[in-house]
Write a protein that binds this DNA or RNA. Structure first.
Lengths: 340, 340
DNA sequence: CTGAAAGCGCTAACAT
DNA sequence: ATGTTAGCGCTTTCAG
């Protein structure tokens, strides 16, 4: 292992001087600095982050909370995987390393916060916490800067898609295409995750504004985000209202399951029932008919979250939250009834 | 910050004694140990990994090399995302934390190996390196234990799907269904990644064994793994051989693009041309027709890799490589010509 | 501009 | 069974 003492020996300077040169601090003659840096390069010196961390109390480590308890898709989750991707790039560019935080370090008796202390992380990004998230409030109360990209945790700034706006636009699109009977297939909601409800509220808001009937019987809530749940939900909904023509789903998988149900009982999509989904998963452009949906701007969400975390790491104040619009992706799952 | 000295003060024991108790080392009376652990628990002591790492030279950190330079799908990659998922679970259960390795730490002048040294990682998993992987040989030559789940790097044990076997089975399946004219749409190959070629070799091997004609003109190589590449490749292949009825593709996206091409020129799938893909992406069960394909056993690959790394961390010897069979997923993209 | 001394939190080696 | 001493690699403080 090559240490600053090796450089000290080679150059004749003392360890603190080497340290100053390496870290670009002041109080050094340019010639000295250059000589030291040259020797460091020459003998292949690499700092020991653990030692540096011990004295400075900074680790240049960002903890990632990533569990995907909801969709069980792991890193392949259509939203979270993409956010993590960009977030990683952003923070590595700022000189930080990313480390996964878990609740099971040290024989399972640690909390997320414990894990932060153990590793002395400088900051935390909460991409997707495990279902039991109450302990996140401990994180929020700590002085470790954090940011969330999915859950709304009191005391932690978040960056989330403009779900209300998207729901509103979905309704507008159906109305514009002459639809008059609407339904919503909701996803599950948790203490800190209200995405499905926000989408519903936007959807309903637009419908009521245009004086359409949309009471609770037109919403069916899925216990999870999978295709099967969409199938079951559509079945129940159809038993109550077989006259709906416009179905908005909380995500693409639910929409796919619902379309499957319709086709399984001989109801044509989109001729008899139209669909709009959410997420723009890869399969959504392959299914039949290709699904009209919303794409969340993962890169932009990650960039905004990275920016917030960077500011907090620098001790600057930040907004309580940022909302990012989703992009509407029009395909062929919505029939224009005005033309028929 | 709570340290062992706080426990020492509270209990009256010295720091090394506290350390022994905390780490379960011998030479302590059970009573002493219990008292120390109780106090530690009571005052909420958490070890400082950086300090521990400084003295022990162990960091309990595993470096992850994950770039996805090939498919640009990031964590949503159909194979790598899944492997990372399970690998993470496995190693966290063994008391390790996962940290991403990059080549750009410290203003971009570090290599993967440099990054390992900086963070003093105990081991490395190479899930998917960046295109320029030559520096991995430096890692292989170092004494840091590593394992690879996609690339074959001299000196590093790997766990990879039985690609040859799968290719062989694909050919068998076509033959069993009465096909006589075959083609292969290859993916790109790099210095260390021969998956596409291995699949081809298995495919060809079976065809030749059954005395079918299969010269190089029946293979078209895509420059990348995307749908568009499959479309273009099928177009070129079709210009040479419009009589093939059985097309095996190096991955599902290429297969999807190729099916698109056929349908775009009015060739029916699977009635006139049949397809087998690779990966079993989510869209593969949604596309039209649903695609017959192979699913790589991501969990099993990750478990085997974790086992190899654990053994190497413990100083035990391991096999040079492990090959894991892929599962054949039969859907409706292969027509049985014997029945027609 | 440079160096000496001290210490971050922990553990290894040895002494008692 | 427990304590003493020393040191991991680095940076901070302060003296020169």
């Amino acid at each position: 292992m090559i240490t600053i003492y090796d450089i000290a020996e080679k150059t004749g300077y003392s360890a603190p001087t080497i340290s100053k040169a390496l870290n670009g601090r002041g109080g050094l003659s340019p010639a000295t600095r250059k000589k030291i840096l040259d020797v460091a390069e020459e003998i292949g010196y690499k700092p020991n982050m653990a030692a540096r961390s011990l004295t400075t109390k900074k680790s240049f480590l960002i903890g990632i909370i990533y569990e995907d308890a909801y969709m069980k898709a792991g890193f392949e989750h259509p939203l979270f995987g993409g956010i993590l991707n960009t977030f990683r790039t952003e923070l590595e560019a700022s000189g930080y390393d990313l480390i996964f935080l878990s609740k099971s370090f040290c024989s399972g008796k640690t909390s997320y916060l414990d894990h932060c202390v153990l590793r002395n992380v400088d900051g935390v990004v909460i991409i997707n916490p495990a279902e039991t998230v109450s302990e996140l409030s401990a994180l929020a109360d700590s002085d470790i800067p954090s940011v969330s990209t999915n859950d709304i945790i009191p005391g932690i700034p978040y960056v989330i898609t403009e779900n209300f706006e998207a729901g509103y636009k979905a309704a507008e699109h159906f109305i514009k295409n002459g639809h008059k009977k609407f339904a919503y297939l909701a996803g599950p909601t948790t203490e800190y995750t209200r995405a499905s409800i926000e989408r519903l509220e936007g959807f309903r808001s637009c419908l009521l504004k245009h004086n359409f009937n949309f009471d609770d019987s037109f919403t069916e809530t899925c216990p999870a985000w999978f295709k099967e749940n969409g199938f079951d939900a559509m079945k129940k909904l159809w038993a109550r209202h077989s006259d709906v023509t416009a179905v908005f789903s909380a995500n693409d998988r639910i929409a796919a399951g619902a379309m499957d149900y319709c086709q399984s009982i001989g109801v044509r999509v989109p001729d008899e029932v139209s669909f709009i989904g959410f997420d723009d998963e890869l399969f959504s452009s392959y299914c039949n008919p290709p699904l009209t949906t919303f794409k969340q701007r993962r890169e932009q969400i990650a960039e905004a979250a990275a920016e917030i975390l960077r500011k907090r790491l620098a001790g600057q104040s930040v907004a309580d939250f940022v909302r990012i619009s989703a992009d509407f992706i029009e395909r062929n799952s919505v029939k224009n009834l005005s033309n028929s």
